[in-house]
């Protein structure tokens, strides 16, 4: 198939978006000018925009609701976020230690992402470029690990980290998040490596590069979209996940944002303004990352595991 690297979604304007234009049947010959246009074009516009609009409302109202609570003064019942206040943000950031949680979450997210990327890049390269005797058992193990309920392994994992003296250190959460993210990242990255033609690498070998240098010079640059997709996947996953942090970290200055949110939720009388502000703090980084990668995500998946 085509490499994911060069594929872009056919977003770019190609003129023929005239509403309700029904293409005259049979006028487009195979390989003619209509090749890149999505063919199910003849949907009436209202059948498109009405459901899309409804779904957009379903998606966006919850976000808006949270934002509303976060910026309007306590006690206000206005449905518009005006006049806005930062009192809730100041409260969660300072009094409820979300500033510290934020740092911890960034550290855990970045460290486990880097770890996942290095380990699964090496393994994914091996899966894509070599056939070896233990390949099938290894793939099977990767697949099987997807069925293991991570939440149900909390107790044995807790004992392991206790023996390693890593309870209440961020290291335990970093390792646990990275490990449970590994199988999927490995499979996805091997798909991306497979899409880079081996002949490119072989040409570099002929020019006298070692395998490692050829990999760095030729393959790695072409893998960038894949690395971005898998890496942000890993970051978002560990940014969001909360059970490991809840179990392994006991002191408050070590906790992460989801645990902080859980604490706010569990309070006897929930401070809705602070809760909403905490939610916004939790949402902003992942939503920004998402906005950058969502296009790559779509092409990334079609290049990766789903198609094997």
């Amino acid at each position: 198939m085509t490499t994911a690297v060069t594929t872009t979604t056919p977003d770019s304007g190609h003129g023929r978006t005239a509403p309700t234009a029904r293409p005259p049947r049979g006028r487009r010959g195979p390989g003619g000018g209509g090749r890149r246009r999505p063919v199910t074009d003849d949907v009436p516009r209202w059948q498109l925009f009405v459901p899309l609009g409804l779904y957009l409302l379903f998606t966006l109202i919850p976000f808006y609701w949270m934002l509303l609570y976060a910026v309007r003064p306590a006690g206000s019942r206005s449905l518009l976020p005006w006049p806005a206040t930062t009192e809730h943000f100041e409260k969660v950031w300072n009094e409820r230690s979300f500033g510290v949680f934020f740092q911890n979450s960034v550290l855990v997210g970045v460290a486990s992402m880097v770890m996942t990327l290095f380990v699964s890049l090496a393994g994914g390269y091996a899966l894509a470029r070599f056939s070896f005797r233990l390949k099938t058992p290894f793939l099977l193990a990767l697949l099987c690990s997807q069925f293991i309920p991570g939440a149900l392994m909390l107790v044995p994992l807790f004992e392991i980290f206790k023996n390693l003296q890593m309870i209440n250190s961020l290291g335990s959460v970093i390792i646990a998040e990275a490990v449970f993210q590994l199988p999927l990242s490995l499979i996805l990255l091997s798909g991306f490596v497979r899409n880079v033609p081996p002949s490119l690498e072989e040409a570099a070998w002929v020019d006298g590069c070692g395998r490692f240098r050829a990999f760095c010079a030729v393959v790695l640059p072409l893998l960038r979209p894949g690395l971005v997709a898998v890496g942000s996947f890993a970051f978002v996953h560990s940014w969001n996940h909360f059970l490991f942090a809840l179990m392994f970290l006991s002191s408050q200055d070590k906790q992460t944002i989801p645990v902080g949110l859980n604490t706010l939720l569990g309070a006897d009388s929930v401070d809705l303004g602070a809760l909403a502000a905490g939610g916004v703090v939790a949402a902003v980084p992942v939503v920004i990352i998402f906005a950058f990668i969502q296009r790559w995500l779509v092409t990334g998946f079609s290049a990766g595991a789903v198609k094997g």
Binding site: P62, W65, N240, L265, V270, L275, G279
Partner: peptide, 14 residues
């Protein structure tokens, strides 16, 4: 991109 806990946060408010 939203986590389970954040989903809870949002829907508790709703």
């Amino acid at each position: 991109a939203v986590s389970g806990v954040l989903t809870t946060t949002i829907w508790i408010l709703l």
